[in-house]
């Protein structure tokens, strides 16, 4: 029983939960979105700042469980400073890992601390928690790209 549980709650996840990276809402930003997980009520408000095709900043404010909080923290580590295209491809890799029902072997070179979420994929009820901020980020990024830069 606790092996499964330890697989879910990797040390890396608990570390990010206790000390989230890049947390808090910051200026400047081109788009801001608010996403909720309707079943449990977890919420995230997330902003993106893009410039010259690069993710300059991702800032967020959120309430939720350890999985959703840690995953927001890992997301920001992975995408800030990356070209938008590369960040989108990391997003896709993380999504595939989460939707793989535990059959996908995570690539540490791409996902870094994100590989700790491999165990979450075996808990269908928690996949939505892990994806909350990632879906918010994709939404915000798409909006920022289509709406162009607003002051």
């Amino acid at each position: 029983m606790s092996a499964e549980l330890d697989n879910l709650y990797q040390e890396i996840i608990l570390d990010h939960y206790k000390n989230p990276h890049h947390k808090g809402l910051r200026d400047p930003f081109e788009s801001e979105v608010h996403h909720v997980n309707p079943t449990c009520g977890d919420e995230v408000t997330l902003r993106v700042h893009l410039a010259e095709g690069v993710v300059q900043d991702v800032s967020y404010d959120s309430v939720g469980c350890s999985i959703s909080q840690a995953s927001a923290s890992v997301l920001t580590d992975l995408v800030i400073g990356k070209p938008v295209d590369e960040a989108m491809s990391i997003h896709q890799t993380f999504l595939e890992l989460m939707q793989g029902k535990g059959t996908v072997e995570p690539d540490e070179d791409v996902l870094e601390d994100g590989i700790a979420f491999a165990g979450v994929a075996k808990f269908p009820a928690r996949v939505k928690c892990a994806l909350l901020s990632w879906m918010a980020w994709k939404d915000a990024t798409t909006q920022a790209q289509t709406e162009g830069v607003t002051p």
């Binding site: 606790s2 549980l5 079943t39 977890d42």
Partner: peptide, 21 residues
């Protein structure tokens, strides 16, 4: 400890509760 995490640990011990709103 967030309710989701409480429910998950309890579930690993066979204890079924509800977490959320």
């Amino acid at each position: 400890v967030h309710p989701h995490d409480i429910a998950q640990v309890l579930d690993s011990r066979g204890v079924a509760v509800r977490a959320g709103h």
